[in-house]
Amino acid sequence: MYLWFGALKLFPGGSPAEDLVERTVSALTFGIVGGDLARVGAAISEIGIAVVLLSFRAPRWCAVLLIGHVVLVSTPLVLFPGEMWAGPLRASFEAQYILKNLVTVAAAVVIASSHPRVR
């Protein structure tokens, strides 16, 4: 999933989350990073996470990357609450996408931390 969604972000207009990624990165960097640089940076980070996940050579590092990624990906829930929430516990489509990432990352962290090399 990370590989696919990351690859989509490599191409302008390739990801439905492109605008949200660009606005979020811009807000988090106080406007220093935005546009194509934000989109490509997000793409490279997601592809990198996919490569680490697929290689399973560094499960602890993978868990750290995943947790860091999910923290950053979750920030629109706080930065843009008017767009993310239609009411109490009524998530927009974008918010549902983000919440799905939380579940996916939680599962990946559990899997990575259960690898024999971690124990």
Rank of each mutant, 00 (worst) to 15 (best):
F93E: 14
T75S: 05
F80V: 03
T75C: 05
V78F: 11
H69Q: 15
P76F: 00
V51Q: 08
V70G: 05
A86H: 06
G68L: 04
S55W: 15
A95E: 06
P59Y: 06
R60I: 13
L66W: 06
S74W: 01
V73T: 13
L53E: 15
E83K: 00
L89H: 07
L79Y: 07
L54Q: 13
S92G: 04
M84N: 08
A86M: 05
V73W: 07
V51A: 14
V52M: 14
E94I: 10
F93I: 14
A50R: 08
W85M: 04
L79S: 11
C62D: 13
V52H: 13
C62W: 08
I49Y: 07
F56W: 14
F80H: 02
Y97L: 08
L54Y: 14
I49Q: 10
P76Q: 02
P59W: 10
F93G: 14
V71L: 06
F56V: 12
A95N: 07
P81K: 00
S92Q: 04
A58L: 13
P88F: 10
L89I: 08
A63E: 12
L54M: 15
E83R: 01
R90M: 06
A50T: 04
L79I: 11
L65E: 05
R60M: 10
G87I: 02
L66T: 10
A86L: 05
F56Q: 15
P81A: 05
L89R: 09
V64H: 00
W85A: 00
L53G: 12
G68C: 03
Q96T: 14
E83Q: 07
A86I: 03
P76L: 01
G82A: 05
T75A: 02
A63T: 08
A50N: 11
L79K: 10
L66G: 12
G87T: 00
P88S: 06
L79H: 08
C62F: 08
T75Q: 02
V70R: 02
F56S: 15
W85E: 02
S55E: 14
A58W: 12
V64C: 04
V64Q: 03
V78P: 08
V64D: 03
H69S: 14
T75D: 00
I67S: 10
Y97E: 03
P81F: 01
V71A: 07
V51R: 12
R60D: 07
G68N: 03
G82R: 00
S92N: 03
P88A: 08
W61P: 12
I49K: 13
R57M: 13
L53I: 13
G68P: 06
A63M: 10
R60G: 09
